[in-house]
Write a protein that binds this DNA or RNA. Sequence first.
DNA 1: TGAGTATGTTCAG
DNA 2: TGAACCTACTCAT
Length: 265
Amino acid sequence: MPEGHTLHRLARTHHRRFVGTAVAVSSPQGRFATSAEIVDGRVLERAEAHGKHLFHHYGPDLVVHVHLGLYGAFGDVAVPVDPPRGQVRMRIVGATHYADLRGPITCELITDHEVDVVHARLGVDPLRADADPDRAWTRISRSRAPLATLLMDQTVIAGVGNVYRTEMLFRHGLDPLLPGRALARERWDVLWADLVELLRDGVRRGSIETLRKEHDPGLLADAGTRRVYAYRRTGLPCLVCGTPIAHDKHLARNLFWCPTCQPAA
DNA sequence: TGAGTATGTTCAG
DNA sequence: TGAACCTACTCAT
């Protein structure tokens, strides 16, 4: 379930598992084989995430750049290693654990400059210490585009995907089609603070759970395993007001909202 | 066995 | 705007 929290959690895990020791890197599937040979046996110096991008720094101009796309995933298993199952693009083996990477949209060896280019293209990441919310506000407050578009625009805010977008808009009672420039500054400040908190919580849990405490108890019976308000709950009663959750396509992505809790202005 | 689905991104038309 | 792509899993036939 790769949104920003997933990548930051991976960076943290990989730091713990692999940083500071020599790792064995391979590509059982073959598509990353040439690059894997170059970093194989080197010491991983740093693991870092920006939005949905993950970087493994092995030294000057030796950075593995990973983007999971829609269904990429990393494993985290204790040694000894098993034979690879399925399509394993990259395998990293450390002293105690190994990680298999499957189905990424990107897995490539790049230079420090190319890393800079990726960083420069991305917007502020609420999970990074250097995040400056004013940069995102500048874009949003000047834009005619709807909030549904802006929140998922990786050049505005890096790391928010469809689940966080859906749930943020719900939690703040915002119409997904409200233009960015119609959002009051005070509401943005609250939204940003909540986003930081929600993403941090996602990193801790390893999953996205967005229900406020007061809505949690009834959830067990009602919302199934997914602890969210609107995402993929089309037609089910809103956990707050009972109105059926609405669904539409917005820029080729699924959009879910409660017409009562998130009324059009 | 095959269809359908997915939290993402890029490219062609 | 739609298709393509990377993969695994669920459900129907």
